[in-house]
């Protein structure tokens, strides 16, 4: 987080290099399923889908963590609850019952995703309103505490699978598309991811984003010029929770399975690692970070069962010897300029 960040945060006029890079990224992501199919590697499509879903979650976390300076160690809560929204709605739909005697189930993606966003937001509002009374390490730990509470809550809910989780027999439906098809689902996720990144880009460049950056750098100064930091931080935390809930809903659809694993603290850690690996407080960093971690994990797992022994030192080297994660590394290598 550089000191001059605020001067760069306002809607950046992208340089030609950066615009070219974005264009190449977009073309690459759209062409990817056809390309890997032509190369005879169709198994790479689900992998790319997973990258996109994690990128949404990590980018949302980054809004709180990187841009808002709120180091949340509990974002798995929103991720998992988003997943459970899909799972519970589907279960209710199959049983033809009412959730809590009020809410009918559904398997329509256009309903489950907004529901996950809504619930993620409400949860973030509750947790954030309480947690933002603390800061620093205490904030890290209290967000972790809330996530752990939810983790154990879902473990003990036998009606929804408890420890074992529950399977979702079919992916949610969307306009009669065959969502079971990997490529179709990839494009659904790509569309959602594009919308999320667009929204985040607008938010970061807006007045709200400027205030947020200001609060991160010097909360007292912002308070002195008449801005109440608490409300802005809470708003950012809620938006962050909404995005992470959305990612969780997509992940539940992707896996056709939800379990308390999605809420485990290591998931919060993983999301954090993606953000740090990609570059804290950068727009596209989380995408690179998610891609790096997911791909690295997949490749290393195929090599050896002791893949963590290779991943660990790589992460260590990244922390010790690169500043600003992969995005920072790209910048120094001169591949496009990113806004900070």
């Amino acid at each position: 987080m550089s000191e001059d960040a605020i001067t760069h945060t306002g809607s950046p006029a992208p340089s030609t290099g950066r615009a070219l890079m974005l264009l190449a990224l977009a073309v690459g992501l759209i062409a990817l399923p056809f390309l890997v199919q032509a190369l005879g590697q169709p198994a790479l499509v689900p992998l790319a889908t997973r990258v996109l879903i994690y990128a949404i979650a990590a980018a949302s976390l980054n809004l709180a963590l990187g841009f808002g300076g709120m180091v949340s160690f509990g974002h798995a809560a929103f991720f998992g609850v988003g997943g459970y929204v899909v799972g519970i709605l589907y279960r209710t739909y199959v049983d033809d019952g009412l959730f809590l005697g009020l809410i009918p189930g559904t398997s329509q993606l256009l309903i489950t995703l907004p529901a996950a966003i809504l619930i993620g937001g409400l949860l973030a509002l509750t947790i954030g309103a309480l947690c933002l009374r603390t800061s620093g390490v205490q904030f890290i730990m209290i967000t972790l505490a809330f996530a752990q509470m939810l983790f154990f809550l879902f473990v003990s809910l036998k009606a929804y699978g408890g420890d074992d989780g529950m399977t979702i027999r079919r992916r949610n439906e969307l306009f009669g598309l065959n969502t079971r098809d990997d490529i179709t689902f990839y494009f659904i996720c790509l569309t959602v991811a594009a919308l999320v990144f667009l929204a985040l880009w607008r938010i970061i460049g807006s007045r709200f984003g400027m205030v947020l950056a200001g609060i991160r750098q010097n909360e007292r100064r912002m308070a002195a010029i008449g801005i109440a930091p608490y409300r802005y931080k809470l708003a950012a935390f809620v938006i962050s929770g909404m995005g992470t809930g959305l990612a969780g809903a997509l992940m539940a659809n992707y896996l056709r399975f939800v379990s308390p694993d999605m809420l485990h603290w290591t998931k919060s850690g993983e999301l954090m690692i993606m953000v740090i690996l990609g570059g804290v407080g950068t727009l596209l960093g989380p995408l690179f970070g998610a891609a790096a971690l997911v791909i690295l994990e997949t490749v290393l797992t195929s090599w050896t069962e002791h893949w963590q022994l290779i991943l660990g030192p790589i992460l260590l080297l990244v922390v010790l010897f690169t500043q600003g994660g992969l995005n920072g590394l790209f910048n120094r290598l001169g591949i496009g300029r990113s806004e900070r």
Binding site: M1, L65, V71, F73, V137, I140, G269, M272, I273, I276, L277, V280, H306, Q308, L309, L311, G312, P313, I314, L315, L316, V318, V319, L320
Partner: peptide, 19 residues
């Protein structure tokens, strides 16, 4: 460094130790 880097580095250490 800030807490984030410490969290990431020590998380990496956990992976190394466990494996």
């Amino acid at each position: 460094r800030d807490h984030l880097d410490q969290v990431l580095a020590t998380f990496a250490l956990i992976l190394i130790f466990n494996q």
